[in-house]
């Protein structure tokens, strides 16, 4: 049989060719013909790493080494014009991700989003964060249409801007296993306990001061979070939550606004039941082994606690 065109070639060979192209090409190939689209849709695309860098004047998305820059030059040097371009870059990038998500077997192992320059928030976000600003509403509406579409296993969001909620919302909760947040863009998380949080197994966050207090962590296998304040009763609550948890393995909380002194430790010890205190060589550190429904070890210092399940 003679192969006159691409459709005469066995599908597994066409898949090998497509496997050597970039994610941008995959998007184009899907629009070439029905045959090609069904071939493309039959491939299991696993992208190892998607890296997104959001900067003032451009956004860059790199998928397994292939980058695309979303950039639009401003014609006028007005703040709202710059803001619009900034939005536009992010929107066009997420539009591409949305297009990629039409691949039925797409899986992204790791999504990393960062903004290299701190301070974007003050520059742009302050302009539209206030309610009623048309640009901001437009941007919000855009992300409202992007809920839970992207299959990502682990996400690291290192931003100092207010995009975190939108990004987390855009990920499919049933696929997401690990969330890591850094940067002060996510202070409002305490009032938005997403499905994504409930499904993930591992959760890490630093520089987020309020999340911990209002969100239960007992569904997690592992967590590593920062809180603003932390009191003995918080540790007791957390311990009780964890005693009910099936999956919990290891958790850490750091806090920064209230350093503990002796009375803090004593207060905690008063509230603990069925425990043994272990000797610790570190100063300002106490270790307790709790044996209730489960065996847990709690290590407390003046500004941190670590709780671990002992098997």
């Amino acid at each position: 049989k003679k192969a006159k065109q691409l459709s005469d070639i066995p599908v597994d060979i066409v898949e090998k060719i497509i496997g050597k192209t970039t994610w941008k090409d995959v998007m184009s190939l899907r629009q070439v013909s029905r045959d090609l689209r069904s071939t493309v849709d039959g491939i299991n695309f696993v992208f190892k790493k998607v890296l997104i860098i959001i900067e003032k004047f451009k956004a860059t998305m790199t998928i397994d080494g292939h980058s695309h820059v979303y950039e639009r030059q401003s014609t006028i040097d007005w703040d709202h014009d710059l803001t619009r371009n900034y939005h536009s870059n992010i929107k066009r990038m997420f539009t591409d991700l949305k297009v990629l998500s039409h691949l039925p077997n797409l899986l992204i192992d790791h999504l990393h989003i960062t903004n290299n320059q701190p301070g974007i928030y003050e520059y742009f976000e302050s302009i539209f964060i206030d309610n009623g600003n048309e640009d901001w509403l437009h941007f919000e509406r855009f992300f409202d249409n992007l809920k839970q579409f992207l299959t990502v296993k682990s996400v690291h969001i290192h931003l100092t801007i207010f995009l975190d909620n939108y990004i987390l919302h855009s990920l499919k909760p049933e696929i997401l296993e690990e969330i890591e947040l850094r940067g002060d863009g996510n202070d409002n998380f305490d009032i938005t306990p997403f499905e994504q949080y409930r499904q993930a197994k591992v959760y890490k966050s630093s520089e987020i001061n309020y999340f911990y207090r209002k969100n239960h962590l007992n569904h997690l296998v592992q967590f590593d979070v920062q809180a603003m304040y932390h009191h003995p009763k918080d540790i007791i609550n957390l311990k009780n939550e964890i005693l009910e948890s099936e999956k919990f393995h290891l958790g850490r909380v750091f806090w920064k606004a209230n350093t503990w002194y002796e009375n803090g430790f004593d207060n905690l010890e008063k509230q603990l039941v069925e425990f043994t205190r272990k000797e610790s060589s570190e100063p300002n550190c106490r270790i307790y082994v709790v044996e209730e429904t489960k065996k847990l070890q709690i290590k407390v210092t003046f500004n941190s606690m670590e709780i671990q399940r002992i098997l």
């Binding site: 065109q5 459709s7 060719i17 192209t21 970039t22 090409d25 629009q31 070439v32 029905r34």
Partner: peptide
């Protein structure tokens, strides 16, 4: 194929669109 739009790929691969 790389770097080309759907239309350009059609030209390169000599595919008539059915989409």
């Amino acid at each position: 194929i790389t770097g080309k739009s759907a239309e350009q790929i059609r030209t390169v691969l000599n595919i008539k669109t059915d989409v």
